[in-house]
């Protein structure tokens, strides 16, 4: 009977797993890639994350915000505090009312250089401004994107490298691009990555594949900055629990030995 039950429960769990996979909507399924963050020993590759930041900053950030990130978070991916400060000072954020109580001068907001304690500067003041600048399409915030899309980083990577000519007979609306991985195959974002459009500080060749990989890895970090701590802590705690449970089992056997 026990095996029947276990089978039923396992079957149930598998069924629920299948639901998650099956309801992935109309886009083509993204191929599964290997990431340093995969598995029980998953960790971040700081050099990769720094390159990914460069891609985000120089390419994505012109349309996509990363609302959950602060400049201070950059010290977690290998920038020194001084470097992070310099990056922050290069961006400007709304300064709030001046002494006269104005927030705008001549119609444009009063700005100040960003500090480490500021969130990353957003490309648009609000969602309407973002739509207005992008043909009515809203570029989604990227800080949680790998958690907010089925397929996670695999999907982001596939999307960034998935731009193709539409197949014959496919009706592409004006201003849209064809992408096999995007639900409905039509995406308002034109192919964002162009070979050699940026240069990496560490001398890595900026191919489209390289940039797509690096920025996807960066977005894993931006969505789950706790990932490394979580997995390291998890290994220790599960090791502890295995020992503790084994002790409990031995004790249980001993205590129950005299029950007939």
């Amino acid at each position: 009977m026990k095996t029947q039950v276990l089978a039923a429960i396992l079957g149930g769990l598998l069924a629920f797993g299948a639901i998650q996979a099956a309801s992935a909507a109309e886009g083509q399924a993204a191929p599964k890639l290997k990431w340093t963050t995969d598995g029980v020993t998953g960790h971040f590759d700081r050099a990769e994350l720094k390159r990914g930041w460069t891609v985000y900053k120089q390419v994505c950030a012109s349309c996509h915000s990363a609302h959950q990130l602060y400049y201070r978070n950059l010290t977690d991916i290998g920038f020194s505090e001084a470097e992070a400060k310099a990056i922050a000072a290069g961006d400007s954020v709304p300064a709030g009312p001046n002494e006269a109580g104005e927030t705008h001068v001549d119609g444009s907001p009063i700005m100040r250089p960003a500090l480490l304690s500021d969130k990353l500067a957003a490309p648009y003041a609000n969602a309407n401004a973002a739509r207005a600048a992008n043909n009515g399409a809203l570029p989604p915030d990227l800080s949680l994107i790998t958690k907010a899309r089925k397929g996670g980083a695999d999907y982001i990577h596939a999307l960034l490298t998935g731009y193709k000519e539409p197949p014959a007979g496919f009706q592409l609306q004006q201003g849209m691009a064809f992408n096999a991985y995007f639900p409905g195959f039509q995406i308002a974002m034109p192919a964002p990555l162009v070979e050699g459009a940026i240069s990496f500080d560490d001398g890595t060749n900026a191919t489209v594949a390289q940039m797509a990989r690096d920025v996807s890895a960066f977005l894993i970090w931006s969505a789950e900055p706790e990932l490394e701590d979580r997995k390291r802590m998890g290994i220790k705690i599960l090791a502890f629990l295995l020992v503790f449970t084994a002790l409990l089992y031995a004790l249980k056997r001993k205590i129950w030995a005299d029950v007939h």
Binding site: F240, V243, F244, L247, L248, A250, L251, K254
Partner: peptide
């Protein structure tokens, strides 16, 4: 066994 289990717990 009891003491070591209690300690670990």
């Amino acid at each position: 066994l009891l003491l070591s289990t209690l300690a670990v717990g």
